[in-house]
Amino acid sequence: MTVYSNTVFHPTFCLLFTKMKIPFFDYKKYCKELPYADLVSETLSSGYLIGGPAISKFEEEIVNYTGIKHCITVGNATDAMEIIFDFLDLPKGSEVIVPAHTMIATASAAVSAGLKVKPIDVNFRYGLLTSKELSNVNLSNVSACMITQLNGICSDMDEIMNLLRSNSVPLVEDSAQGIGSFYKGTHAGGFGVGGCLSFYPAKVLGCLGDGGAIITNNDDLASYAYSVRDHGRGVDLQPLYWGRNSRLDSLNANILLTRLLNIDYYIEKRRRLASLYDNNLSALQDQGVLKLPAKHSVASDNPSTYQNYEVLAEKSSDLMAFLKDKGIGTIRQWGGFSIAHLRNLGFNIDNYPRTLDQFDRMFLLPMNHMLEEEEIIYITQSITEFYGA
């Protein structure tokens, strides 16, 4: 196979390929990637369908990989964040800061604990809530702050933690997209009270269906979460708390253990494809019609995992339609709705002009380890063709 990693195509070049079909994420291909029948057989032979050695082993391996003290697997990342807020037991009706650019699950985790969320515009360069935006917020009446570590990078956590500590505000990290993401050597989810991981199939580390985990250095939160995920029961099955049923199953633990063996490859492949995107689209960025994603965490040398390749584009809706006609799948993150867009839940996007401007232009290009370089070249040439560059 010819490698084009360092190739930048002149806009007058004709396309090298006939029309291709590139879904945003190829779930059918994903479902054929591992020897799933063998993993099912292994799980059935163990006799453990929920709990058991596969769960314990996976939690141990996540601790080893992230360097964070505890990993408690749960049914999904939303449950993980809700359990963290249950643990904090903050005053009902008090205010929690959330980034405007995040999934509804981030805010709903706080709302589920009887709290009120306050969206804050994110940084234009990074798409994250950074210390620059947070420093303009009155933290005196805030009960907690949520930072979403987004698209494979982390925010500038040193400055954020200084701001929050000086105001005695606890941090909850939505690090659902954060596996493999670091800031100055600390893994996403390792800065505040606790963070979460999502193992949804399209994540860097995915399973078959929903799955999640709490990651934390807080011993008390870990003890609480181990109990609450299993109906609040202790080791003798006597209830310690009111709990819930939120447990990762053993089959998905075995799948995740298998995929975790390849996580360095998955991330390196994403970085290689992102470099190809960057090289072939840099001229459009120079022209001001396209903004490419950040390559590193904020104020850090730690490189992105490229969980997503999110661009800001002029005429984004027209471009997405053009790419669809070319057979290329794209999506707007969160369905194109920030927290501030959710009028039915009491928010007004008109109060967030910067977020409105960003969401009018932002969308995701295909990015995962199953893509081939030829497909990225086809995508970048199609984008170049659209802009007539």
Rank of each mutant, 00 (worst) to 15 (best):
Y4N: 10
N6S: 12
T12H: 13
L15F: 07
P23K: 09
P23H: 09
F25P: 04
D26M: 06
D26F: 04
K29E: 13
K32A: 12
L34R: 08
D38L: 13
D38R: 14
S45H: 12
L49N: 10
I50E: 11
I50A: 06
A54H: 09
F58M: 11
E59P: 01
I62L: 14
T66M: 03
K69D: 12
T73E: 00
V74E: 01
T78K: 10
I84M: 11
F85E: 01
F87I: 06
L88Y: 11
L88T: 11
S94D: 11
V98S: 03
T102M: 13
A105L: 13
T106I: 07
S112F: 09
P119N: 13
D121L: 04
V122Y: 02
N123T: 07
F124E: 14
G127Y: 10
T130V: 12
K132C: 07
K132R: 15
V137G: 05
N138V: 10
L139A: 06
N141L: 09
A144P: 01
M146N: 05
L150V: 10
N167E: 05
E173R: 06
S175T: 07
A176M: 03
G178Q: 03
G178E: 02
G178V: 06
I179D: 00
G194V: 09
L205I: 13
C207W: 00
D210H: 13
T216N: 01
N217K: 08
L221D: 02
S223T: 09
R244D: 01
R244K: 15
R244P: 00
N262E: 15
E268V: 08
R270G: 02
R271S: 07
R272T: 14
R272Q: 14
Y277C: 08
Q285C: 12
D286L: 09
K291V: 08
H296L: 00
H296W: 02
S297E: 01
S300F: 05
D301H: 08
S304C: 15
T305S: 08
Y309L: 11
E310A: 12
V311R: 03
E314R: 11
K315I: 00
M320P: 00
A321L: 12
D325R: 10
D325I: 02
T330N: 06
W334Y: 15
G335L: 09
S338R: 05
I339W: 08
G346F: 11
F347E: 03
N351A: 12
P353R: 12
D360R: 15
R361F: 00
R361G: 00
M362I: 14
F363V: 08
L364S: 13
P366S: 10
P366Q: 09
M367P: 02
H369I: 02
I379F: 02
T380V: 05
E385T: 13
F386Y: 15
A389T: 07
